[in-house]
């Protein structure tokens, strides 16, 4: 019984962790690049347009700033990642 429960819990935990990206906050902008703050680390990404501003929450992939995320959505997703079973 215990083993079965353990297996089910393990599966549920694994399903919680799906493919949602972690947003970063722009703390520095230069021509063609931005520095993102992820709380624990800072990373640099390439930008193609001037659409981004300091303080924007964005998603970066493959070194490219791909899209701006509304602040509310960014904070909500950061909260999801901080839940003990989803990190």
């Amino acid at each position: 019984m215990h083993a079965v429960n353990h297996r089910i819990i393990k599966k549920l935990k694994s399903l919680i962790k799906m493919c949602l990206a972690i947003p970063g906050k722009i703390i520095k902008l230069e021509k063609g690049k931005a520095i993102l703050d992820y709380g624990t680390e800072k990373r640099e990404g390439k930008t193609m347009a001037d659409d981004f501003n300091i303080g924007d929450y964005v998603i970066m992939q493959a070194g490219i700033i791909i899209q701006k995320i509304p602040k509310d959505d960014a904070l909500k997703s950061l909260k999801l990642f901080k839940q003990p079973d989803s990190t």
């Binding site: 399903l15 919680i16 962790k17 799906m18 493919c19 949602l20 990206a21 390439k46 193609m48 347009a49 998603i59 490219i64 791909i66 899209q67 995320i69 509304p70 509310d72 959505d73 960014a74 909500k76 997703s77 999801l80 989803s86």
Partner: peptide, 30 residues
């Protein structure tokens, strides 16, 4: 699953979409 609580913009990013390329600079497509 996790998409239950996920914000709309994050959900949209997770989807496979069809889009038109409107600009290109080096290895980045707009």
């Amino acid at each position: 699953d996790m998409y239950k609580d996920a914000p709309e913009t994050l959900k949209e990013l997770s989807k496979v979409i069809e889009a038109e390329i409107t600009d290109k600079k080096e290895d980045i497509l707009e």
